[in-house]
């Protein structure tokens, strides 16, 4: 019985965005990373190939975090004390690019030093996050941005309450920005409009729809991502940006990942469960259209990378 397979053809597409610049392009990266460019829903190869496959960023910090799960401390060991070493280990673990998260304890000088040491230690493109407090974010990111002119870093995280300073410095120094809105299609669009209105070229914006962990609101982000991608394909220009999501950060906050003792026996082996928590949160977001997944554990990185590899081969 011959079956006529329905295919969708969309008027719109996601913009392709390149992170990092090689020496020929005014930076120092050994390679760049290009994401986005999709012309159909995730991995539907029978409609169109996936032009750029989603990539994995590993999140490292400028200082050893004291609130991370002991499992992560065990996995990264000594390297956590030195961002350069940590970056190198992350590169060896299969990261396509890195996120360096700065902390409240960093001065602008500390921040610049940490960023430079990471850039020197690996050839990977880099995303830099402020500590998440508006004033401090601005102070540190401006210093970093100026000290790394032309590297095409991604600076974040821009939110509606605080985006101007970050966008302005990224604009002036040839960087990109990460624009986060709280799980809402219209709020995402609105922030993207505000950022574009400041003159930021559209191929220098990454959209962060906000992520919840498995069991802690993941499904809201999942559906918002599906809706954002559908809007982009339908031709809504202010949603046509690649999506960056943070399953590592969210999953490793959960009790399921963080705590090994005094939890129900039905939760099973701690380490395997914790890695599953991160991996499955990430996989769900891969299915809903993520372009960059920021992860923390090397085992999840390997598993999610393999999954993406299998999804992009027809």
């Amino acid at each position: 019985m011959p079956v006529d397979i329905p295919k969708d053809k969309w008027p719109g597409s996601v913009r392709a965005v390149t992170i990092g610049a090689t020496s020929a392009e005014g930076g120092t990266r050994a390679k760049t990373v290009t994401i986005g460019g999709e012309t159909t829903l995730p991995y539907l190869q029978f409609e169109a190939p996936t032009p750029n496959k989603p990539v994995i960023a590993i999140e490292i910090k400028s200082r050893k975090p004291d609130d991370w799960s002991p499992l992560l401390a065990e996995a990264w060991g000594e390297a956590m004390n030195d961002p350069a070493q940590w970056a190198k280990r992350a590169e060896d673990s299969g990261a396509d690019l890195l996120v360096l998260a700065l902390t409240l304890a960093d001065s602008p000088d500390d921040a610049v030093k940490a960023v430079k040491s990471v850039l020197a230690a690996t050839g990977l493109p880099l995303i830099v996050w402020g500590p998440g407090q508006a004033e401090k974010d601005n102070e540190l990111l401006v210093a970093v941005s100026e000290a790394t002119k032309g590297e095409r870093l991604v600076l974040g995280i821009c939110e509606d309450k605080n985006y101007r300073t970050i966008v302005a410095t990224a604009l002036a120094n040839g960087h990109l920005v990460q624009a986060r809105a709280p799980m809402d299609v219209n709020l995402s669009k609105q922030l993207n409009i505000l950022i574009s209105d400041m003159g930021m070229p559209k191929d220098r914006i990454l959209m962060d729809p906000t992520t919840g962990a498995l069991g802690y609101g993941m499904e809201y982000g999942y559906s918002v991502m599906e809706r954002l991608r559908l809007a982009a394909l339908q031709g809504d220009a202010m949603t046509q940006f690649p999506m960056i999501v943070t399953p590592g950060f969210e999953a490793w906050k959960t009790k399921e990942a963080k705590v090994g003792e005094g939890v129900p026996e039905a939760w099973g082996d701690w380490k395997a469960r914790a890695v599953n928590w991160e991996t499955l949160t990430a996989l769900a977001l891969v299915e809903s259209g993520a372009d960059i997944l920021v992860l923390r554990h090397a085992e999840s990185v390997k598993r999610v990378k393999n999954a993406i590899g299998e999804l992009v081969t027809a």
Partner: peptide, 8 residues
């Protein structure tokens, strides 16, 4: 495997 069943 409870460590997989639970997240699933």
């Amino acid at each position: 495997k409870p460590e997989l069943l639970y997240p699933l």
